[in-house]
Amino acid sequence: MTPDRLRAALRGVPDPQWLDAALRRVATEPKAIARLFATAARRCGRGPLPDPPGWTVDEAARALLLTALPADHAAAADSLYRHGDAAEKRAVLRALPLLPIGAACVPLLHDAIRTNDTRLIAAALGPYSRHLEQPAWRQAVLKCVFTGVPLAAVDDLHGRADGELAAMLAAFAAERHAAGRTMPADATDLLDRLGAGSHPTTAREA
């Protein structure tokens, strides 16, 4: 994902002049981002974008506002996340891989993964999750299975999934089996792919 692609996707918003002006203002007056970030959804909309897939208008607009800052992106992302409603938090999480911040905002991922808000958990497992340590990443993947977040939300799932994750998933499948419950199909598929096919259940969700 690039800011240019998001910018192109937002050409059709109802009030493109508001967004243009907001982006220019943030570039010269960084503190203005707090209020502009909060109002972006009302001005730009909240619907899904046809492209890039998986993004909504408000997420894209807010991510662009963050990229438009001249400096101190990590501090701004932290502040907007800490003071944001759920949609603002989600937009910050989605913007992280677009910002020149290294691993500075990993604490925001930990915060999001601690919640039970599936929208935040999913957003925390995008491309920026490459900065998560492996144990935290495995726990987050397992939490996705547990809370019903589709594993398609997890960036680089197949590159990072390892034997330890397979063991954790197999144990979870055993618990579900003992309780007479099924595993989500995407988790069963992952388990199969990781070569832990001897897990005790092959039941799949209808």
Binding site: R42, R46, T118, R119, A122, T147, G148, V149, P150, A153
Partner: peptide, 26 residues
């Protein structure tokens, strides 16, 4: 307030058993 958002509020309620709201949604 200009902020009341009732978009799709007339749509049938999503099922809440398990986590079917997000599943399939993205």
């Amino acid at each position: 307030s200009g902020k009341l958002d009732l978009t799709d509020v007339d749509a049938p309620a999503p099922t809440f058993a398990g986590n079917s709201i997000l599943r399939g949604g993205e």
